[in-house]
């Protein structure tokens, strides 16, 4: 994906499709070539496992985290961070927006829909898919969820990110086996597969076999993972 012409990357998709990990990695990659870069957590659905969990990485890389003060706290409030407006007001700022899952999460996009569209070809609105998630494992189910997200957020996707993974058990074969799924979605929607995100250590095994591979670093190794 060519970052140079973009100012905004919006990531939306089915619940649990891997948007937050992708958002953190995209922001870090972008910051390597541009400044300033922000990561905006617009998730109004998820109570745990938020972009805030990667705050140390983001701080170290000088990526500004725009996040609700209540993310990861005990307050279960679907709050949009007050700083969100800045990513539209400040034309020097490049931003990745991590949207909550499904149509419920995409609702938060609605109020920004006009401003997102106004960025025209300086914005990418990416549909993140993972065929190993059971409710979107069939392409017709995935397409239905995509339609719900576009309707709820009043947005149009501009590309697909194939984030096929089985968490820590992901093999290169899993990624390669997902290609027909991603190609079907691309054909049905007319959208390009702009990235195939792959855990960094698996990347050599799939290089040349998947379109636009993008390495993912996993920032969350919780204490309870043995």
């Amino acid at each position: 994906m060519d970052f140079s012409s973009l100012r905004l990357i919006v990531l939306a998709g089915h619940y649990g499709s891997g948007k937050t990990h992708l958002a953190v990695n995209l922001a870090l990659r972008w910051r390597a070539v541009r400044a300033p870069v922000a990561l905006a957590d617009l998730d109004i659905v998820n109570p745990y496992y938020r972009a805030k969990d990667a705050s140390a990485w983001l701080r170290e890389a000088d990526v500004r985290l725009i996040s609700s003060a209540f993310a990861g706290s005990n307050l279960d409030a679907p709050a949009v961070p007050p700083e969100m407006g800045r990513i539209f007001d400040d034309d020097t700022l490049c931003a990745v927006v991590d949207v909550g899952g499904d149509d419920r999460g995409a609702l938060a996009l609605g109020r920004y829909a006009g401003r997102i569209a106004a960025l025209r070809d300086r914005r990418a609105v990416l549909w993140v898919v993972n065929p190993y998630r059971p409710l979107t494992g069939r392409t017709d189910d995935a397409l239905a969820v995509m339609g719900e997200i576009e309707a709820a957020g009043n947005i149009r996707f501009t590309g697909i990110v194939n984030n096929a993974n089985l968490g820590p058990e992901t093999t290169p074969e899993n990624v390669i086996a997902s290609l027909p799924y991603a190609e079907t979605l691309a054909r049905e929607t007319g959208l390009p597969i702009v990235l195939t995100s792959v855990r960094a250590d698996l990347l050599p095994a799939v290089a040349g076999l998947v379109p636009n591979p993008f390495p993912l670093r996993i920032f969350h190794k919780p204490e309870w993972v043995l």
Partner: peptide
Amino acid sequence: MTEKVLMKGNEA
């Protein structure tokens, strides 16, 4: 596609 799927505990 595969025997395994990726799920949240609540979904499982």
